[in-house]
Amino acid sequence: MPAKTPAPVTLTGRHVRLEPLTRHHLSDLFAAGGNDDAVWQWQGGPTPRTEAELGEKLDTILDNEAYVAFAVILLESGRAIGWTTYLDISPIDERLEIGWTWYGSAYWRSAVNTESKLLLLTHAFEDLGMGRVQWKTDHMNQRSQNAIARLGARPEGVLRRHRLRPDGTWRDSVYFSMLKDEWPEAKQRLGERLERG
């Protein structure tokens, strides 16, 4: 029996809540990460300099029926500080990808990414019945590669000349994955990391 197809859902932890992404989140999102070159360097496309430009990026996600997108809400403030998505979803193959993720730079190396991924992975493996979760990132984005590896994901290889960047250069994509039998150990480590703060 195949895994379940993800649907919009709210996932709540101690630090963040993931809720279905909507245009309602736009002002908070721009305040958190708009006009910040560091946030958008690897996101594919120019840095959004205005709320309207960020709205165009948000609409690209909302208009794609193949994505299940979440706003990342910081519980302390109740404000959206980034977004993340399930994509490349194949229930018959029991797999999906976590991607199109960003957070305002003020929240990097905090509990935000760890707990967001813990919520997404728990939902994917335990509620939806996925057997594989994957990530991909630019081969030059070492910060992202390090963050993915810290989750317990394993590097799988590189797709060379995979995507054309907005500046006309070619991106190689580094792939990582986690399988359902690797999830219990990863879940324990992520929980322990959150406990340590």
Rank of each mutant, 00 (worst) to 15 (best):
H162G: 10
P2W: 04
L159D: 11
V158H: 10
P46V: 08
W102F: 07
D36W: 06
R171A: 10
L164G: 10
R109I: 07
T169N: 12
D127S: 13
K4V: 13
D59K: 10
R143E: 14
L54I: 05
L151P: 04
F125L: 04
R95P: 07
G157T: 07
E65V: 12
R193W: 11
S116V: 06
P46C: 08
E51A: 09
G99K: 03
R79V: 07
S110N: 03
P48I: 05
S116F: 03
K57L: 13
P2K: 05
G82F: 02
L62A: 04
D167V: 09
V39K: 02
N113K: 00
P48K: 01
S110T: 13
V9Q: 09
R163F: 14
A111F: 11
T85V: 05
H123C: 02
T101M: 01
A106E: 15
P166F: 10
K4Q: 14
G152V: 05
R49T: 08
L119G: 02
R196D: 12
A80G: 00
P2C: 09
K180E: 15
A52R: 12
F30M: 02
Y67R: 11
A80I: 01
Q134D: 10
Q134C: 12
A69R: 04
V72W: 00
H15W: 13
L179T: 12
R163E: 15
M130I: 02
L159R: 15
V133E: 04
Y103G: 05
W135C: 01
G168R: 03
N141T: 09
R163Y: 13
G197L: 05
L119H: 01
L62T: 01
E56K: 14
I73S: 01
R154H: 12
R165V: 08
T10P: 08
P48H: 02
A186H: 09
L26P: 04
L62N: 00
P155H: 09
L11H: 01
G104A: 02
D138N: 10
G13N: 00
E65H: 14
R150L: 08
Y103W: 11
T10H: 04
E56G: 11
S177Y: 06
G191F: 07
G55V: 02
L128T: 00
L58M: 07
N35I: 03
I92V: 15
A52I: 10
T60R: 14
S27M: 09
E115W: 02
T85W: 03
S105P: 09
R132K: 11
S105F: 06
G152Y: 00
R14S: 15
L29T: 03
E97N: 09
I98V: 11
Q41A: 15
P2T: 08
D28E: 03
G78Q: 04
R161E: 15
R95Y: 08
E51T: 09
W83P: 10
